[in-house]
Design a protein around this nucleic acid. Structure first.
Lengths: 201, 201
DNA sequence: GACCGCCCATGACGAACGTCATGGGCGATC
DNA sequence: GATCGCCCATGACGTTCGTCATGGGCGGTC
């Protein structure tokens, strides 16, 4: 019997996935959590064989939780399950020690199959996603560049960003300019969008 | 036996929801589709009692599909099931003739309960969402204002928008300006974001 | 027929943005 | 100890953005 932990913030999706997995004779959902910061405690308490983690979760993102799980409960394998197949997500998930990376777009029967393969020691990666992760390359943004792009995502002005990050306005413009260059964008918004799509933020 | 059609673009979520619903003795999923433009044909072919529709679907959005279903197969009731509880979505879904509106955030057992109530002739709406739909009011944007905001969402420049919509640049700036005013925003990006959050685009 | 809202356009002006040059401080690398 | 990357800052310059005034065309309403 393969014991599973399920971390997913949308209640209906979480319940539905649990129903789907319980249909399989060899799978058993032993814990469900809705927040990223509840993952580690639940893993330590229930000791699942596989932790199925969404990435975008309240409290703590799934990738950070994955790293923590690997560190504190090495016998639990981590399988990421996400809506967004962003190259940077895949890269970071793998660096965090995940055993696999699935996008929710795929067919439903792929999930149980992937879980069994992960338990068998395999690492699961969507080939197309792996290719785009390789061509996209490393995240070229520096820490501050990520900061200003994150702040600029929803249309904040230079003044607002400067206040938020305690920087001078000129410095903010400089970081925005270099970020725009690195993302091949025409302006801050396109830069933020591209960086986000690549999982760089 | 309540016969269901399921429209949802993410394969794993669709399969999982089907598994969840099949657990109920009185529910039966008779058709599943991944695209909005496949909904009407599938409804006409399978004649479900309830069509469970996601809103953001490829091909045709779920609200437009709902209107079409009401028109061509009036005995099939429509229950919207979406990730985003946007006031404008709710309003438009109801205007399109939907019998209910659920967000995926809710508990999984709410889904089957809502389906049974919809079959019984009730209309299901999240109270909090209904309140925000009422306070948000009608969509104040004109057709062209929506057009330029949609085009501006991802950082397109005035020149790019003007070319895309075959307008002069001054006209585009005017529409952006009025949209910014109506959304209480400081710039085009914030305006686009707010309008999007309210389901106005 | 007057009025109103939406459409489209032009011109002008101040504010914000994106770029470039320049420079100092700091830790890591060689 | 020199080099390099990242951090932060300033000043200057040209471009784009957001606003306002103004006006014509067009369809619907009172």
């Amino acid at each position: 019997m393969i014991r599973l932990l399920l971390a997913e913030d949308q209640g209906m999706v979480r319940g539905a996935l649990a129903a789907l997995l319980e249909l399989e004779d060899d799978l058993e959902v032993v814990a469900q959590v809705a927040r990223g910061d509840e993952i580690v405690d639940a893993v330590l308490e229930h000791r699942p064989d596989v932790a199925l983690l969404d990435i975008e979760l309240p409290g703590l993102d799934g990738i950070a939780a994955a790293a923590e799980v690997r560190r504190r409960a090495a016998q639990t394998r981590v399988l990421m399950l996400t809506t967004f197949g962003r190259p940077g997500y895949l890269r970071r998930a793998m660096e965090a020690g995940a055993s696999g990376f699935l996008v929710k777009d795929g067919p439903a029967d792929e999930l149980a199959a992937a879980i069994r393969r992960v338990v068998g020691g395999e690492r699961i990666v969507d080939p197309a996603l792996a290719a785009s992760a390789l061509t996209a390359g490393e995240n070229p943004l520096t820490g501050r560049e990520r900061d200003v792009l994150r702040a600029a995502r929803h249309g904040a002005t230079v003044t607002a960003i400067a206040n938020e990050l305690h920087l001078s306005e000129g410095t903010v413009r400089n970081y925005l300019s270099s970020s725009i260059g690195k993302t091949d964008a025409a302006n801050r918004i396109e830069a933020a969008r591209r960086a986000d799509d690549l999982g760089w933020l």
